[in-house]
């Protein structure tokens, strides 16, 4: 092979490489700017101390994390979020499934039922929170008015530490269940009617059919909904701003709200960054475990 042909080949290869990078660049730039860089910056920030005018920030390693674990507020907020996830995830999924099964059955006014269930999903969270604020208002709110009819005493649902978190949970469930129902409804409609008839002829009761045929066939949907619910249990905090602002005395404060507070109210960026990293780790592990565990028992069609 002569020198010139080798040179030509090399040039062609180089041109191809340039071409490839050019094609890659838009996605690469977008992802770097909006995903990779912030993640790395967050981890980086979490390793530095909070800088003030007198002592500038310095590298402190895992000290921020240590401080977080000693922070009673963080522990309470983490516990709140665990409770919040532990209640809203299963309740909204079960509710969504029940509503979907009902809305999929041959009932009168089926279209109306479906729309009614779906409406909360279409509302922005802020609007939903405002509606519920009206429900919860002590004295003349809907809940108190109804309670009053039966002689129940007025309850300040959002204003007392014992009930505030549960009131928040109720709003989230109300909002999420309709959303998840749509996925279940879509999945239910792909199950052919003759499977039910075949099971019926074999002597399966409705319950057996549900348990042995419908639920397994809905597994992929359940997995999807579960991951979404997990993420939402951390992500969905818009209503906190309207309803309780985390109070009273942190009883309804969730992690993301606390992160926001630390960063933008207390200007403690390193501690906010450390919390963000912790949340990301927990969410990542959670999603991985769910996919691994359920994947083995999931039938994809």
């Amino acid at each position: 092979m002569t020198d010139s042909t080798r040179q030509l080949q090399q040039m062609a290869r180089r041109r191809q490489a340039v071409h490839g990078w050019l094609l890659l660049s838009p996605a690469l730039i977008m992802l770097s700017t909006f995903a990779f860089y912030p993640s790395v910056a967050t981890v980086w920030t979490s390793l530095w101390s909070r800088g003030t005018r007198r002592n500038p920030s310095e590298f402190v390693g895992l000290e921020n994390y240590q401080r977080l674990l000693d922070d009673p507020t963080f522990r309470e907020v983490a516990w709140n979020n665990l409770l919040y996830a532990g209640v809203t995830i299963p309740v909204s999924i079960v509710l969504a499934l029940v509503m979907a099964l009902w809305a999929n059955a041959k009932i009168p006014a089926r279209g109306f039922v479906r729309t009614a269930y779906f409406t909360p999903t279409m509302l922005p969270m802020i609007a939903a929170a405002n509606i519920w604020l009206f429900f919860y208002t002590p004295g003349f709110g809907v809940l108190d008015t109804i309670g009053g009819l039966f002689g129940a005493p007025s309850v300040n649902w959002l204003g007392q530490p014992e009930t505030a978190l549960w009131a928040i949970c109720a709003v989230t469930i109300w909002k999420e269940a309709g959303f998840f129902m749509v996925f279940y409804l879509a999945a239910l409609q792909t199950i052919p009617e003759d499977l039910r008839e075949a099971a019926q002829i074999e002597g399966a009761s409705r319950w057996t059919y549900l348990r042995r045929i419908v639920l397994p066939l809905l597994m992929p949907t359940t997995l999807f909904v579960l991951v979404n619910a997990l993420i939402n249990s951390v992500k969905l905090i818009d209503h906190l701003f309207i309803l309780t602002k985390g109070g009273p005395s942190d009883s309804s404060k969730l992690i993301l709200y606390y992160i926001w507070e630390s960063a933008f109210a207390f200007f403690d960026a390193p501690s906010a960054a450390a919390m963000t990293v912790l949340v990301l780790i927990v969410l990542g592990v959670g999603a991985a475990v769910q996919f691994r565990m359920l994947d083995r028992r999931t039938h994809y069609r």
Binding site: P192, D194, L195, A198, E202, A204, L217, M219, H299
Partner: peptide
């Protein structure tokens, strides 16, 4: 059934024995 109506998530054995298991 014309469409067979086999249960897609069960294997051949479970499909055949579905009714007997239910009963």
């Amino acid at each position: 059934f014309q469409s067979y109506a086999l249960f897609p998530h069960l294997n051949v054995r479970e499909n055949i024995l579905f009714g007997m298991k239910v009963r």
